[in-house]
């Protein structure tokens, strides 16, 4: 009896101490974790919007379009998604451009990247790959300068088709197309919602 009681007491104390320590650790770490994420986002947004000093967050509802040639995805129900759009402002508070995050499945997993539009000239400023799981040495080249830089300065009215106005990465067509398809559809959505009219 006393032995099993001791077992219960020891286990309870262990679990309570552990819970206590962890909740303190979590509290302490959480501030830093959130600050990291905000700082990281801030850095890339200001990076893709040259001239911007600050930015404000706009929410945009988009319905991801299903590419017609992609039969495999056609059964998936279209999901309503909120993608954040960031409006970059210069020091006088005037709009310099819009930045937005694109997510599109590639070859190995979801590709997440951020793109910036200069709304004065309606051209792309640049894209930056945030996350991808593409094959190292092949699809991973979407994150390298030669592929990314061809988007800088492109008009947002361009077709964004691999083989036409965009050079794909040889051996990694799926990865290249994931970027251009995602970019094309999201630009249209973003401009429809937040672009200057007229």
């Amino acid at each position: 009896m006393s032995n099993s009681l001791r077992m219960v007491i020891v286990l309870t104390i262990t679990a309570m101490l552990s819970g206590l320590v962890l909740s303190y650790a979590y509290e302490a770490a959480n501030t830093y974790i959130q600050r990291n994420e905000e700082a990281k986002l801030r850095l890339v947004i200001l990076d893709v919007l040259p001239g911007a000093e600050t930015y404000e967050t706009l929410a945009s509802k988009t319905q991801p379009e299903i590419p017609e040639d992609d039969v495999t995805l056609s059964e998936a129900p279209p999901t309503q998604q909120l993608i954040p759009v960031y409006r970059g402002l210069d020091k006088n508070g005037k709009e310099v451009g819009l930045a937005f995050i694109v997510e599109n499945p590639g070859y190995g997993g979801l590709i997440r990247f951020i793109a910036g539009i200069d709304t004065r000239s309606n051209t792309l400023t640049q894209i930056q790959i945030l996350e991808h799981k593409e094959t190292p040495g092949l699809g991973s080249k979407i994150a390298d300068a030669p592929f990314r830089e061809q988007f800088s300065g492109k008009s947002i009215a361009d077709p964004f088709v691999v083989g036409q106005d965009v050079d794909g990465i040889s051996g990694a067509t799926v990865s290249s197309k994931a970027v251009t398809d995602g970019l094309r559809t999201t630009i249209q959505e973003v401009m429809k919602r937040h672009g200057k009219r007229g």
Binding site: L11, T14, S18, V21, L22, A25, Y26, A29, I33
Partner: peptide
């Protein structure tokens, strides 16, 4: 302090606690 019969669960809790601390520390 730990009775022999429950040592493994106690060890697991101790290990998991430190692992979570490392996890939070690296994330921060």
């Amino acid at each position: 302090l730990v009775p022999k019969e429950v040592r493994i669960p106690v060890y697991i809790v101790i290990i998991a606690t430190f692992v979570t601390i490392v996890d939070l520390f690296l994330k921060a």
